[in-house]
Design a protein around this nucleic acid. Sequence first.
DNA 1: TGTCTGATTTTGGTCAATCAAAACCCCCGC
DNA 2: GCGGGGGTTTTGATTGACCAAAATCAGACA
Lengths: 218, 218
Amino acid sequence: MPSITVENYLKRIFLEQQESGGEIVSMGRVAQAMGVVPGTATTMVKSIAESGWAHYEARKGVRLTEKGNRMALAILRRHRVIEVFLVKILGFDWTEIHEDAERLEHAVSDRVLKRIDDLCDNPNVDPHGDPIPSATGEFRSRPQMTLFECPIDQPIRIARVLKQEPDFLQYAEEKGLVPGAWIRVIERNPIADAVTLHLQNRGQITLGGKVAADITVE
Amino acid sequence: MPSITVENYLKRIFLEQQESGGEIVSMGRVAQAMGVVPGTATTMVKSIAESGWAHYEARKGVRLTEKGNRMALAILRRHRVIEVFLVKILGFDWTEIHEDAERLEHAVSDRVLKRIDDLCDNPNVDPHGDPIPSATGEFRSRPQMTLFECPIDQPIRIARVLKQEPDFLQYAEEKGLVPGAWIRVIERNPIADAVTLHLQNRGQITLGGKVAADITVE
DNA sequence: TGTCTGATTTTGGTCAATCAAAACCCCCGC
DNA sequence: GCGGGGGTTTTGATTGACCAAAATCAGACA
Ligand SMILES: [Mn+2]
Ligand SMILES: [Mn+2]
Ligand SMILES: [Mn+2]
Ligand SMILES: [Mn+2]
């Protein structure tokens, strides 16, 4: 029912909402995230609200309705299941699948998604470690520690890589900094804004805080 | 580069052109095939011509350029490879895949198509027996006989089922009238416009000429 | 050759999605 | 309490895709 554009807005708004802990999302932020001019975001959000996907308050921001939430989760699910498919079945690298998933998520019907999901053994995280909403719309993003908060000098496993920039993912792949990998935090220096890791037989590296906060472990 | 809409027009024009033996295609026909009003077809075809995909002659019709042809073949290839994928890998029935392929054909990138194609063992016909253009754009639709022209009382194999209507495909499936199946033409009566077939241990049926002409054999 | 008629094109309008730039308004600091 | 300023909304336009209906034209037929 929603157009491809609206689907993208819904997913985006949902994600931004998540990221800010359920806060109402400003038009500036929507515009930024969608790569459009603020006026466009305003107009689109208003029409999305019109259709009952969201509540919009002028000069405050937007928040998805129950219905909007369900829709957003369905789209997110499609995106992430497809990412698993691209890696697990088609053999792509986890660093270069985002774009394709971004287009396919709007073309895959429920029945096709079901089969793909089965073919992938009903995964519950995608190749970046991001949780996959269930077919019924359940979605628990159980809170994890980032490399900035986790215990030191203990073997821990990478859970998610939040940052999506291809360059960074490439780098992470190279260093074996991938979801599921075991590492150890050697040292953490808040003043220097740096975290030093010991990678599984790949020496050690030091990351800045910005990046360290975008990698979660468990 | 072309929008989804334009992709659909290109594929459609190509197919109509094929079907009429390379003739120029009238606006009425394009409109009909695309399910739009004639004025819309005129406008769209003009803009498609503008972009160099086709030649348009007012009150004559449209014919694809070399470039348009290549594009159309690429889309047709995507469509048909995806159909194979839906049947062979995802396990769908050949009678109910068209709609999904229709949407996916616009969302699958070259690299994804390549992998899917490999996964399916580089087929050269789709589940309806329709030939798949090669990745380089070769497309030989070697002429076949229809049930109306083929030799009588000889074992022959179904090659293609041209008719795409779900109801008919369902019926064909039921009767084992599927690409690859062996049958025998028992009787042909041009006056009664009827062809009687012997199906592999499924008795015999009689088809009208309209339908018989839409099934080819080899 | 002139006339009709059905196919085609044009015209005028809508809707979705977008931008540029002007208008607006809310809150923050003096 | 009063401005400013920055984020937000409006306004005016554009582009793509479409429809309804009026205008046009080309070929068939008399
Ligand atoms: Mn998308
Ligand atoms: Mn992901
Ligand atoms: Mn299509
Ligand atoms: Mn087919």
